[in-house]
């Protein structure tokens, strides 16, 4: 059972206190989007084995959504950061690359 540290309140919460929210950093496609763009937004998920960015909500705590960078295979957590972040922060990227030198952020 995972533990993640909520970047808002600093509590290291266990998975039972959290609500998962799927892949992070999706860009919403609204009425102007094409069928293909919309399909990708709604259905296409990266689901990688390795470095992944996820949404979690500190549901039984401060109620805030946050983002987590972790390895889906080893369950190593590289860091958590606030949801109001359109892309992984420099700190997070540095933490990932420290552990996974070959990894580069998606363009």
């Amino acid at each position: 059972m995972l533990t993640l540290t909520c970047p808002y309140c600093g509590i290291t919460a266990e998975e039972t206190e959290l609500q998962p929210g799927g892949e992070a950093h999706l860009k919403r496609v609204g009425p102007d989007g094409s069928d293909d763009e919309f399909e990708a937004y709604i259905f296409a998920r990266a689901n990688p084995r390795g470095v992944h960015f996820e949404r979690w909500r500190h549901a039984y705590g401060c109620g805030k959504w946050f983002l987590a960078a972790r390895d889906t295979a080893t369950l190593q957590v590289f860091g958590t950061y606030k949801a109001q972040t359109p892309a992984p922060t420099d700190d997070i990227i540095a933490a990932i690359q420290a552990a996974r030198p070959d990894w580069t952020p998606a363009p």
Partner: peptide
């Protein structure tokens, strides 16, 4: 939760 999701994220 749905509301907070859209407002926060």
């Amino acid at each position: 939760g749905h509301m907070e999701d859209w407002l926060q994220c």
